[in-house]
């Protein structure tokens, strides 16, 4: 007999109550989420609107719509060093994130899966230092990059960015590979596959979600990195957008609408990247809850 046929009138009203409660809770849930979304969107919408205003409107009419949308704020930044800055940022970001992720994946994999002399030492040092911030090593880092003759070069920007991102990335890969089903590799090994073969044919194809998550996180970091770039670049040839944006920021006054236009433009690629890889991103972190 099913539960429904046994239902007494009392349970019937209880169910109605629960149904009503669920609707109420559902409404409250939507209400709360919508409020949060609005609070999060307001500043972003404001920036988009402000980038279409005149300088005067930005200061004195911060709330309203722009009287006449100033689209030229966007076209004009194309005539400055901004496109070159963006190109530099792309070079720096790709040049940093790709090797960083490859090296970290390699290291995270062997640290988690293999036994060799020094494994423990490397693991402990990497984890011990993963919380080190750029600013705590800035001066000696600057002197070293200077001594290597790498100031104002892409290498001088890229190498420290790779290095600072390695510990956290290694840790994520390490966690991922720790939980990676050993049976797969074991089967391949029994078939006589070399570790290289196992890595490329078995492990890598299954690591896409975690690789993508690390790529997103580190791309956000490198794309937005400001401190090291501001100290180590003086030339236009390598200047990324984070310091290039200051071409609109004078000694005494700033071209806010154009700065905000830049801000909007540089946000777009990251949001697109997130949208494209969102599914994997969520899956990778689900993997970490183990």
């Amino acid at each position: 007999m099913s539960a429904a046929t046994q239902m007494t009138p009392q349970r019937e009203t209880g169910r109605k109550k629960r149904w009503f409660g669920r609707r109420l809770r559902g409404g409250m849930a939507y209400g709360a989420l919508i409020l949060v979304c609005i609070a999060i969107l307001i500043p972003i919408v404001w920036v988009v609107l402000a980038s279409l205003k005149t300088r005067r409107e930005v200061f004195l009419e911060p709330l309203g719509l722009p009287a006449v949308p100033q689209w030229q704020n966007y076209t004009q930044i194309l005539e400055t060093a901004f496109p070159a800055n963006i190109a530099n940022s792309v070079i720096i970001t790709v040049g940093s994130v790709v090797p960083m992720v490859i090296f970290s994946l390699m290291a995270g994999y062997v640290l988690a899966r293999r036994v060799f002399l020094g494994r423990r030492l490397v693991y402990v040092v990497i984890v011990l230092t993963f919380a080190i911030p750029f600013h705590s090593i800035l001066v000696p880092l600057y002197r070293m990059v200077d001594a290597l003759g790498l100031l104002n070069t892409f290498a001088g920007l890229i190498l420290p960015n790779i290095a600072i991102g390695i510990p956290f990335s290694v840790m994520i890969f390490y966690s991922f590979f720790r939980d990676f089903p050993a049976e797969l590799e074991e089967a391949a090994r029994l078939d006589g596959c070399s570790p290289w073969r196992i890595l490329f044919s078995v492990v890598l194809p299954l690591s896409a979600p975690v690789v993508l998550s690390v790529v997103i996180l580190q791309t956000v970091n490198v794309w937005n990195e400001f401190l090291w770039a501001s100290i180590s670049t003086t030339g236009d040839e390598v200047r990324p957008w984070t310091t290039g944006i200051m071409q609109f920021q004078g000694e005494y006054s700033s071209d806010w609408p154009r700065i905000l236009a830049v801000v909007n433009v540089v946000m777009v690629p990251l949001i697109l990247l997130y949208l494209v890889s969102q599914k994997y991103f969520v899956r990778a972190f689900a993997g970490m809850n183990k």
């Binding site: 494994r119 040092v125 080190i132 000696p140 070293m144």
Partner: peptide, 24 residues
């Protein structure tokens, strides 16, 4: 295999993070 895999990360990280930290 192990050292090739771990090498690049260890070198970069030692040169650009650990060494400056010691100098600090």
């Amino acid at each position: 295999f192990d050292y090739i895999m771990i090498g690049p990360a260890v070198v970069l990280f030692s040169v650009f993070i650990v060494w400056p930290a010691i100098q600090t």
